[in-house]
Write a protein that binds this DNA or RNA. Sequence first.
DNA 1: TAGATTGTTAATCGATTAACAATC
DNA 2: TAGATTGTTAATCGATTAACAATC
Lengths: 209, 209
Amino acid sequence: MNQIIPTPSLKRLPMYYRELIRAIDSGIRYMNSSQLGKVLGIPSTQVRKDLSYVADQGRPGVGYNTRSLADTLENFLGLPQPKNAVLAGVGNLANALILFPGFRHYGIHILYLFDNDPGKIGQELAGRPIYDIHDMAEIIHEQHIPIGIISTPSAAAQQVADTMIEGGVKSIWNFAPITVHATRNVFVLNQDLTVEMAILSFSTLHSDE
Amino acid sequence: MNQIIPTPSLKRLPMYYRELIRAIDSGIRYMNSSQLGKVLGIPSTQVRKDLSYVADQGRPGVGYNTRSLADTLENFLGLPQPKNAVLAGVGNLANALILFPGFRHYGIHILYLFDNDPGKIGQELAGRPIYDIHDMAEIIHEQHIPIGIISTPSAAAQQVADTMIEGGVKSIWNFAPITVHATRNVFVLNQDLTVEMAILSFSTLHSDE
DNA sequence: TAGATTGTTAATCGATTAACAATC
DNA sequence: TAGATTGTTAATCGATTAACAATC
């Protein structure tokens, strides 16, 4: 997908960003790589290395200006650009996601909800109407929606993904416990909570005193 | 935490398990490393390497018996052992988690819910009473609960984690957007969805046609 | 047996980390 | 200036992958 920055580094950037915002909210104007690393459990060398992919903003002897580094990361991650999204599969998880305060802050706006259950189509959830999934590809296409979120049962997930891709999304966030594959060059983030659950299970039993 | 198996391999085991269960449900009795790798987007060499940490069950020329490999993985991950859990912070996410069908299958049972909101304490959610968070450490201790799930706002998360650790949990699954640290030797899984959101944002804007 | 696929060694690749000159 | 911290090079570490003898 990108060669700008190694994937492990990319995954840490949002954490730096998150902590910088927290620091700014506490009135902290400068942080150095050791402080930033400490709250995240990351060595300071790695913090500097990661940040070097993004910008060279640090002041030797001083550290990083929290506001300006946060801005740099924000722009690098594309958070200020509004990005519309559709969500397919209206259940409990969908409900939690829609009400999740994070989305707005990260520029992601869930505009349309879809389901295939006639009992749900036409109803509302959190003020958003639920549409027939058969209309999804068309709406994605017409409205140029770049993000698809899948919270259907796993049996439906791949087909729903195909429909989203057909409509023209650029990325998919899949919560169904299955690895969804993209035909075209679409970014797919498979977020299977049962995988984490299994690791939690293993770790609970191996947490050696 | 463990030297039995490298962390990246450990994280793939639940996916193999998941696909094996799916295969079994479809009546498939054998799968080889290429087939298993294909559905997950993983090279067959890596599949074999990963599985070699767990057992040597494959039959050259044939592949893996789905039932027996699934059993091996299940036991390795500790899924059959019942593991009780408490959850702190009763909001929308908590609601989705409690109703998530996956937990039971992975042997995790959310027994007690806690909150600090007097308006919620004494109420019920999905048939479970909501207790005062001030009683959490004591209940964890008395009932020997090994897992703590955090779905509080981030400002409360570290303190809630400390209380869980004080009570004696062995592992913590934290959904608050903050990196929680463990004092003792407790496994902490920080599941910050805003991190994924930021990566989704970046990837959406960099999905090069 | 011939064909297929495993388990594992060794080579490759890429990420992390130590060290330090540059610089505020 | 002296002290602190950056950005980056080079060394280390560990994971992925290619290759192949062992084996069903």
